[in-house]
Design a binder for these strands. Structure first.
Length: 197
DNA sequence: CATATGATCCGCT
DNA sequence: GCGGATCATATGA
């Protein structure tokens, strides 16, 4: 429990949190107690001033959690089959969050491999929907509190230095493409797309 | 390696 | 009805 990131970590501007999440560790706990862990290597920041953000047009039933307090988990469903997870950031009611896009498996790779239907470790968490599938995250976890949940949380891990961080435009959106709010660990083989950035 | 396409649901216009 | 913060597979260079 002591390794968990605290509320104040998330209660900052989304781009700052996105940058700082690189090198941190997402931890999941299975019903049977098995621990899953993965080191975050790619994130994206979403703010309410951004046409590509779900929060751009204000709160709805779907995105309500994004307007909640920092440190909540916002999970959405898209393309008819995929889930993606975000950590809510900033002030309560603001509508900003950081999308977790890719991670390097550290613990529980066997469980992830079974869920993902592949043995290739590089392919278990190298994309936002893959990451959710590997950890068994769906809308049932929408709104959980990363401070107190026994199902999913984020630990301190090892923050990375500026020399290793690359900032780029974001992926998979058709508007708001001018914002440089995607953060990746440069040359890391576990980023989405399977290619170093 | 690159581009194309199908899968399959739901929130929003 | 449309199209999306995606992924896996298929096909062609």
């Amino acid at each position: 429990m002591s390794g968990r990131l605290g509320r104040r970590f998330y209660a900052r501007a989304a781009p700052e949190v996105a940058r700082d999440l690189l090198g941190r560790v997402v931890v999941g706990r299975e019903a049977d107690g098995t621990r899953l862990a993965a080191r975050i290597v790619e994130t994206e920041a979403y703010l309410p001033d951004d046409e590509a953000s779900h929060s751009f047009r204000g709160p709805t039933d779907r995105n309500r959690v994004m307007f909640g307090r920092a440190g909540l988990l916002y999970v959405y469903f898209t393309y008819g089959m995929h889930h993606c997870m975000n950590a809510v950031t900033g002030r309560d009611g603001e509508g900003s969050a950081v999308l977790l896009r890719a991670a390097e498996p550290l613990e529980g790779a066997a469980v992830m491999a079974e869920r993902r239907g592949t043995d290739a470790v590089r392919n278990l968490c190298s994309g936002p929907a893959k990451l959710c599938q590997a950890f068994g995250v769906d809308r049932g976890l929408d709104g959980l509190d990363l401070m107190t949940s026994e199902r999913l949380w984020i630990e301190r891990g090892s923050p990375v230095g500026d020399a290793v961080v690359a900032v780029t435009t974001r992926v998979g959106i058709s508007s708001g493409t001018d914002h440089h709010r995607r953060f990746v660990v440069a040359r890391d083989p576990f980023v989405s797309g399977g290619r170093p950035a």
